[in-house]
Design a protein around this nucleic acid. Structure first.
Length: 426
RNA sequence: GUGACCAUAGCUCAAUUGGCAGAGCACCUGGUUGUGGCCCAGGAGGUCGUGGGUUCGAGCCCCACUGGUCACCCCA
């Protein structure tokens, strides 16, 4: 028996209401904030993601990307993220001549070859928001606000922001912090376990969100990035926190919140929700003022976030949020009779269903010439309100039977008035 | 990439020490001509995830692979 490849999932009809809830709400909120939709290809030249990731992370990135060679020899990659592709589009289509900042959102699948665990798959769907071309901290606030609006509208309760600033590449900023961080942990090198010793050598910032037992006692006194910010970054962060205070959005300054890639600057944030295992974050984002330059463009500030739809849905279920029901047909047209009469009744039912749908009334037709009993069972399970019954008697009199499933009442309605009658019941 | 646990019908699960593959739910059909939900009866649905091995004999024991769950690594 065939199975889906590891980490790839079918999305079954049972989950459709959740998907509609999330995607429809995202679209609505985005338009409320004046964000415009962009859709980039699922495949980009591998270089877009490699250059975007920067040299340090390239090894890691290569390992987790679905990269393949096209028939003409080009190296292509299934997008492992949205931001790099959107920045490529920003440059390719000269979006810097549009009014700045450019506010974009997108929704679609991304692919990473990683091992599955709760809320993590090899293909997952992400809602992604980017604001490009403006460094004003009010933009950071705007991006966090739209995330907040989405999650509130979806029905989440008890959400909170985690915020931090990791500074910028200016020698007076992050490099100073990194040096202090390395010096601090190097002094305790003997206490670190193997994993954290490697972090110290490879990606010291990551020590700050280490889960290793041995390191926990060291974390409280570890140098915090917010204490090493340059003037520009400090003012930026203070302004952002000021806006968050003013809007009364609940947030916590989390000095251990970091990012793994070099192009991130200043603001990093997440939104956390309870109840989905180790993956508490339902949204992660940050400012990436260095990215566009890495891709060969002019210095261009940007900030954005991504939010995994599968994870959102899992969290919604965890919080027992009921998505709105999808629209369903409200009428079934059943046909009965044997032989010639049966075929006439079926044809008549076909005609009524067609007219109902044209009139905007959702209608179902039972197939396979089943017994009326069976057809009523089907109607009951489909949840329709009315069953129209057409058989020999109805064909002769022109008065068709309409059964209301709620109270089992039946009445005769003239065929000519049926459409209007049923439409009025909705 | 690492580790733990797991895989029998569409779903949830049984199957004594290795000895004839089962139940409930769901599905289909009936319970006299054209009436749903409840009930009753019947039917269909499985090469026991796949491939090897041990054995007279494997759903059960061993190995590999695939997939699932969870955690680590990593996290764009």
């Amino acid at each position: 028996m065939y199975q889906t490849p590891k980490g790839f999932n079918d999305i079954l009809p049972e989950d459709a209401p959740y998907w509609r809830h999330v995607t429809a709400t995202a679209e609505r909120v985005a338009s409320l904030y004046g964000f415009e939709r962009i859709d980039t290809p699922i495949i980009e030249f591998t270089e877009v993601f490699e250059r975007g990731a920067g040299q340090g992370a390239a090894v890691v990135v290569d390992k987790e990307m679905y990269t393949f060679q096209d028939k003409d020899g080009a190296s292509l990659t299934l997008r492992p993220e949205f931001t790099a592709g959107i920045m490529r589009a920003y440059l390719e289509h000269g979006m810097r001549v549009r009014p700045q900042p450019v506010k974009l959102y997108t929704l679609g699948p991304i692919f990473r070859h990683e091992n599955v665990q709760a809320g993590r798959f090899r293909q997952h769907t992400q809602w992604n928001v980017e604001v490009v071309g403006e460094i004003d901290p009010a933009v950071d606030f705007e991006v966090m606000s739209i995330a907040w609006s989405l999650f509130s509208e979806l029905g989440f309760r008890g959400l909170s922001f985690q915020v931090n600033s990791i500074g910028c590449p200016d020698p007076a900023c992050r490099p100073r912090h990194l040096a202090a961080l390395v010096a601090y942990f190097a002094a305790y090198r003997g206490q670190l376990n193997e994993i954290d010793r490697r972090r110290l050598d490879v990606n010291p910032l990551r020590l700050l969100d280490s889960k290793e037992k041995e390191s926990q006692p060291l974390l409280d006194a570890a140098p915090r990035s917010i204490d090493y910010l340059c003037d520009s970054c400090r003012q930026h962060f203070q302004a952002l926190c000021g806006y968050l205070d003013w809007a009364a959005l609940p947030y916590e300054i989390n000095t251990r919140l970091v990012r793994g890639f070099d192009y991130y600057t200043k603001t990093v944030f997440e939104v956390w929700a309870e109840g989905i295992g180790a993956q508490a974050a339902i949204c992660g984002g940050g400012r990436y003022d260095g990215l566009v330059e890495l891709l060969g463009g002019p210095p261009t500030p940007g900030i954005g976030f991504g939010s995994g739809v599968e994870r959102l849905i899992a969290a919604l279920k965890e919080q027992q949020v009921q998505p709105p029901a999808l629209l369903k047909p409200t009428v079934q047209v059943s046909y009965i009779g044997k032989g010639e009469i049966g075929q006439q009744a079926k044809q008549a039912a076909l005609g009524l269903v067609r007219e109902l749908r044209q009139a905007g009334v959702g209608a179902l037709l039972p197939f396979g010439d089943r017994s009326l009993k069976s057809q009523l069972k089907t109607a009951d399970k489909a949840g329709v309100a009315h069953v129209v019954i057409v058989g020999e008697g109805e064909l002769q009199s022109g008065q068709w039977t309409v059964r209301s499933l709620a109270d089992s009442s039946q009445q005769a309605v003239a065929r000519a008035e049926l459409i209007a009658w049923l439409a009025a019941q909705q």
